[in-house]
Design a protein around this nucleic acid. Structure first.
Length: 258
DNA sequence: ATGGTCGGCAACCGA
């Protein structure tokens, strides 16, 4: 079972890249974020043609999440349960007996902004959602653009970047609380190398060539599922595609019968 | 070296 997460930065702009990558990788499930497309305009036909089911929740211009799957998608849920609703940041479903939660965590703008408080609260609300919905002994996969680089080896310059909204003590604390509920960082189970990133800022000159990046996209699994993971890789080659996203996919393999 | 990112969407906003 191959499961991946990819912040596409507009699904319609990235459609050729996504379709080609699915054909090449034969991923069973792809969770996408920042689809930037309203539900009425979602390109379902393109995925139908290559044998992928899709569920999605989007809005105009910003945010938007979707799950693409070769296998039937069951028990679909949209958004965190309570107010304030932002349904276009979370989509959950069950596929082949695995509970998949795909999130686009708020970026947080600046540490002194309202949006940063909202980001911190979002993690708290997500933890409540996990507590209410599942047990740590269940097969749960939490994937997405979490907008957190968890440790100093996950950013290109930890000294300078400390305090950034994606590399901030309060955010590390917030992520840690959710992880403590029962998640394993599947990438770090398989690789302890520094400098393995999933995001390089468009605005930074030659960021990819200089590897000035961040590891913001994650596959987190509960212990019973993490025990069955056989590998986790970052599809860096997609950053060299024509019209690449600023993010690349992270891909995890599980020894899991479908 | 006097420029230097994308995408959505129609003027700027968000990342």
């Amino acid at each position: 079972m191959k499961v991946a997460s990819y912040n596409v930065n507009s699904l319609r702009a990235r459609l050729p890249v996504v379709l080609q990558w699915l054909a090449d990788s034969q991923a069973d499930v792809l969770c996408v974020q920042e689809t930037k497309v309203q539900d009425s305009d979602f390109p379902t036909g393109a995925f139908d043609q290559i044998g992928y089911n899709c569920v999605f929740r989007g809005q105009k211009s910003y945010n938007g999440v979707a799950i693409l799957s070769k296998h039937p998608i069951e028990h679909v849920e949209y958004g965190l349960p309570e107010e304030p609703k932002d349904q276009a940041r979370l989509i959950g479903a069950r596929i082949a007996g695995i509970n998949i939660v795909n999130t686009y965590v708020p970026q947080g703008e600046a540490p002194d902004s309202e949006k940063f408080q909202y980001k911190l609260q979002w993690f708290t609300r997500l933890l409540d959602y996990f507590r209410r919905s599942f047990k740590p002994a269940d097969a749960v996969l939490w994937l997405g653009d979490l907008n957190v680089a968890p440790t100093p080896i996950d950013v290109y310059d930890p000294k300078t970047l400390l305090g950034h909204v994606c590399f901030h003590p309060a955010v590390h604390e917030a992520l840690s609380h959710v992880m403590t509920w029962g998640f394993v960082d599947v990438f770090r189970k398989h690789c302890d190398k520094p400098g393995e990133y999933t995001f390089w800022d468009y605005r930074m000159p030659n960021a990819f060539a200089r590897n000035l990046g961040w590891r913001l996209d994650h596959v987190m699994a509960t212990v019973p599922l993490a025990d069955k993971s056989t590998g986790c890789t970052i599809a860096k080659e997609l950053r060299r595609a024509e019209r690449p996203s600023d993010h690349v996919p992270i891909v995890a393999d599980f020894n899991w019968k479908i």
